[in-house]
Simulated assay, not measured.
Amino acid sequence: MNNSEPPKSKRMKQKDDSRRLLIEAAVRCFSRNGFHKTGIVEIAKEAGMSAGNLYRHFPSKDAFIIALVEEEQRHALSKMEFKETEKDPLGQILTIITSCVSNPVYPMDQRLWIEILAEASRNKGVRHVFNQSDIIMRESFKNLLTSAIHEKQVDPDYDVETLSLWLYALIDGLIARTATDEQFSFDHHMSQFNQLIRQALKPKEFQ
């Protein structure tokens, strides 16, 4: 019996491996020089590939940013679904916030996420993908917030749409603080942050 992997699957794996290699090379270049000072040829050289081979996977620099946004989205959504049945949905939200701030999905770091935010503010195509991802992510947050209201962790008078916006604004701000302030350690302040959020959101009857 032939247990070898089908040729098509091997080709797909090679394609995925090449794509991953290019993303990691782009991340190193973007982090080192910034998005606009990095050229396609530089990324290809960093990855040990020809520019022609790179274009088969990524037709433009924007495509790298879009791929990173989508990967961050997949990574975060997998965390949101992992503990769906737990009785502490607010705790799950806080865990997700901590993870997003402290450990952006490999191979990104906080500085590169700020670079992506800046590019989304200038580039219509990147902004569209970023906003679409934001809508999907906040929808999951809204589901968790609804569960938190059911578990009497969040005041039912709060609007979950507005809360999801504020929570995501907090994530962006904390990532920016982590990226720019060497003295700031979110892990160090995390317990007090969690306490503040729980206190701010809990039902009035328990305040």
Rank of each mutant, 00 (worst) to 15 (best):
L144W: 01
G34R: 03
N131E: 15
E5W: 03
A120H: 02
M108K: 10
H150S: 09
V69K: 00
K45V: 12
S18C: 11
K204Q: 11
I96Q: 08
Y55W: 03
M108N: 13
A76F: 10
D88G: 04
L201Q: 05
I149Y: 05
Q14Y: 12
H36E: 08
K13A: 15
S121D: 15
E139V: 07
V129Y: 00
A118I: 09
Q199V: 06
H189W: 12
R122V: 05
G48H: 08
E46L: 06
G39T: 15
G52V: 08
K13M: 07
N143W: 03
E46P: 04
M190C: 14
A169L: 14
L112M: 12
L90D: 08
K204T: 14
V160W: 08
R11N: 08
V27G: 03
L68D: 04
Q92S: 13
K152S: 13
R138L: 05
F58W: 01
H128S: 08
K45T: 07
K45L: 12
M190H: 13
I96D: 02
A118F: 06
D16I: 08
V105P: 03
I135K: 09
N103V: 10
T178H: 12
E119H: 05
L196D: 12
A148W: 05
R56I: 04
A118S: 10
G52K: 07
F141N: 04
V27Q: 04
F130P: 00
P107F: 06
A47R: 00
L54K: 00
I23T: 04
F64V: 06
G52Y: 01
C29V: 02
E42N: 06
R111N: 08
K83Y: 13
A76R: 14
I149C: 06
E84P: 07
C100Y: 11
R138I: 08
A118D: 14
R74G: 13
A169F: 15
N3G: 10
R32I: 00
S121T: 13
Q14T: 11
H188S: 08
I96N: 07
K204V: 13
S185Q: 05
Y168N: 15
S50M: 01
A200K: 09
E71Q: 15
G91L: 02
Y158L: 14
L165I: 05
E161S: 11
K152N: 14
Q14N: 12
M80G: 14
L167N: 01
M137C: 11
I66N: 00
F30P: 04
E5Y: 12
T95P: 01
E139L: 11
T98M: 03
S78M: 13
H128D: 12
K37A: 11
N3E: 05
R11C: 01
R127D: 07
L112E: 05
L90F: 10
I43S: 00
A148T: 03
D187Y: 04
I116C: 06
N53M: 11
A76E: 02
F35S: 01
T178K: 15
V126E: 01
T98A: 14
E42L: 06
H189K: 07
N103L: 10
K83F: 15
M190E: 15
I93Y: 02
